[in-house]
Simulated scan of single mutants.
Amino acid sequence: MADEARAYRYVGPAEVRAAMRHAPAGQVIRTMEDLIAWLGVVGQDELANPFTFVVGVQGNLRLAPRRSEHVACAGGGVVLSAGEIAFAQGSDGWEVAEVSNQSTGYCPEAGSWTAVEEVLDRLGVAHPGRFTDEFVFRRCPECGERNVVKDGSFVCTVCDGDLPATWNFDVPAEGY
C-alpha cells in the first residue's frame, strides 16, 4: 500500500460498534479466484445490489452483503478505505460497475481510492479508475455530528454550525 495512505478508524456510533462486536467479518478476497468463488455463493439477489467493502491496513479487500455495517466487515479494525462496490460480468470476466466511499462508520476521504485501486489492480479486476460516487464527510466541531457535505454546503445538518473545509475525523471528538 502507498506510504501516504491514511488509515481510518471507526468513527460511527459506539452502540453500532458494540452491536457488531460478534458479527462475522467480511470475506477476505486475496485473488481473482476468491472473488469468483464468493460472487458465486452470494446469489443473484445479492448480486443485484452493491456490497459493503473495506480495504484493511494489510491491503486486503473484504466484502460483505450491503446491509452489513462497515465496522463488522472490517472485523472492528482500522481501514485504508470503505464504501460500497458493485460487480458486473464484463467481456473479460468480473469487473467493478460502481464503487463509492460511502461509509458513515469510517468517513473515508475520496483520496482513499488509491488503496481500492491498488487492491483491484492486484486482483486483476477491471475498474472505473476512480470512485463513481464520491462522498465528502466532516465532523461538526460544535456538536460532534458526522455530516455528509452536499452541494458544497459545509453546514452541519444538526446544529447549523460551520463545517471545516478539510477532513477532520483524525481530531478526537472530545465531549461527544
Rank of each mutant, 00 (worst) to 15 (best):
P24F: 13
A25M: 08
G26M: 08
Q27I: 10
E33H: 09
E33A: 15
I36N: 08
I36F: 00
W38K: 00
G40Y: 10
V41L: 12
V42D: 03
V42S: 03
D45T: 12
D45L: 12
A48E: 14
A48Y: 03
N49W: 15
P50M: 12
F51V: 06
V54Y: 05
G56K: 00
V57T: 15
N60A: 15
L61K: 04
R66G: 09
R67F: 13
R67L: 15
E69F: 15
H70W: 04
H70Q: 01
V71R: 02
A74D: 06
A74F: 08
G75P: 00
G75A: 11
G76C: 10
G77T: 09
V79S: 05
V79E: 06
V79F: 12
V79D: 06
L80H: 09
S81Y: 03
G83C: 10
G83Y: 04
A88V: 13
Q89E: 14
S91V: 15
S91P: 02
G93I: 11
W94K: 02
E95M: 14
V96Y: 06
A97Y: 09
V99L: 03
S100V: 00
S100C: 05
S100N: 05
T104I: 09
G105T: 03
G105W: 01
G105I: 01
G105K: 05
Y106I: 05
